[in-house]
């Protein structure tokens, strides 16, 4: 009866929110990768709730990049090629780009200043850690329980020596493939072979890893179910809190069904995938780890009214986004059979 009374007397109304006077910020997204060309995304934030789904690119920004406090160049705006992103030009979207001849290098610090008409200037600093070599990858075939069934899987134990200091890592697995595509451009039939990197989802039961959950039912979406063991991962992040200065063995499981060429996105045209697994262990700095962890948590929890609010880690002064660095060591020693139609067991 109390609740009936409260319920009948309680009321809901729209709150006239006086949003603080805010003007749009410059947002910068850039993960410098050792040995790779330098490119950044520079966009404008939108006030919440967003009025459109479109991305607000800033095309007239001035961007100065410094390496070890020395100016190494100014980034120019370009509109990248549409379509599947190529190996050396990872982003198919609009971005700022520094020539291929200038590469980011591990062991260096970088800073960036960005200004654009109508926006407050932003700045950020970071460094690129040295890569940590993969000592070895031990493999075996195992059967795992998955959604009340069993999956025959490739178990990989990725061994590496954690160096001194605070370190964080990102791990991903991919295979390189090529496919031929044909299309008309200006009434001319064009035939082209593209090289692509196919990321291989995997399971990782390490309790310390942070990962972006991929729903097995519809890859790319966030599963709402609590049983996280059933989530596939496309990459995992981990800090060395539990294995400082020790050899660590990170265990991942790849169901053989995911090594089936047909499991990959259905690109048009002829397809060929190499048999080597590229196991990539990225050394990342703490800022990148915090960014990934907080961002994944926000995406996963933003509709949970009981959970604490999640602020995505941001190291951009006067703006938002991430400016960080990574370097990679790759192990390509694992060679898999070509599976076209592997059985589930």
């Amino acid at each position: 009866m109390i609740f009936i009374l409260i319920e009948s007397s309680a009321c809901e109304q729209i709150l006239e929110v006086k949003y603080p006077e805010r003007k749009a910020m410059i947002t910068l997204n850039c993960i410098l990768t050792s040995g790779d060309s330098i490119l950044m995304e520079v966009k404008s934030s939108q006030s919440y709730p967003p009025q459109s789904d479109s991305t607000l690119f800033i095309k007239n920004a001035s961007i100065a990049l410094y390496e070890d406090q020395k100016l190494i160049g100014e980034l120019k705006y370009r509109e990248a090629d549409p379509g599947i992103y190529p190996l050396k030009k990872k982003f198919q979207y609009f971005n700022y780009y520094l020539t291929d001849r200038i590469m980011a290098e591990s062991g260096h610090s970088y800073s960036v200043n960005v200004s654009a008409p109508g926006f407050t200037d932003i700045s950020a600093n970071t460094y690129i850690p040295f890569p940590v070599p993969i000592i070895s990858v031990d493999t075996s075939s195992v059967v795992i329980n998955y959604s009340n069934s069993q999956l025959k899987s490739l178990e990989c134990l990725i061994n590496f020596q954690d160096p001194e200091g605070k370190n964080s890592y990102m791990l991903s697995v991919d295979r390189i493939g090529r496919y031929k595509m044909t299309y008309y451009e200006n009434n001319v039939l064009i035939s082209k072979t593209n090289t692509v990197r196919y990321f291989i989802p995997f399971f990782c039961e390490d309790p310390d890893v942070v990962y972006f959950r991929i729903s097995p039912g519809s890859p790319g979406t966030i599963p709402l179910e609590k049983d996280e063991k059933d989530s596939w991962m496309s990459e995992v992040f981990i800090t060395d809190d539990s294995f400082k200065n020790k050899v660590y063995s990170l265990r991942i499981l790849i169901p053989y069904m995911l090594l089936n060429d047909n499991a990959y996105p259905q690109n048009p045209g002829e397809k060929f995938t190499m048999r080597k697994l590229n196991i990539r262990l990225y050394s990342i700095n703490d800022e990148f780890y915090k960014y990934a962890r907080s961002w994944y948590t926000q995406v996963y929890k933003k509709n949970d009214m009981f959970s604490e609010p999640v602020g995505v880690y941001n190291n951009i002064n006067n703006g938002a986004g991430i400016f960080s660095g990574k370097s990679v060591s790759v192990d390509s020693s694992v060679v898999v059979r070509i599976y076209y139609n592997p059985s589930l067991k």
């Binding site: 966009k43 982003f91 990321f199 961002w295």
Partner: peptide
């Protein structure tokens, strides 16, 4: 905790 802005990102994998 009021969400005041949104911005999009493609990191780390696109």
């Amino acid at each position: 905790t009021l969400i005041t802005d949104v911005y999009d990102t493609y990191l780390p994998k696109g």
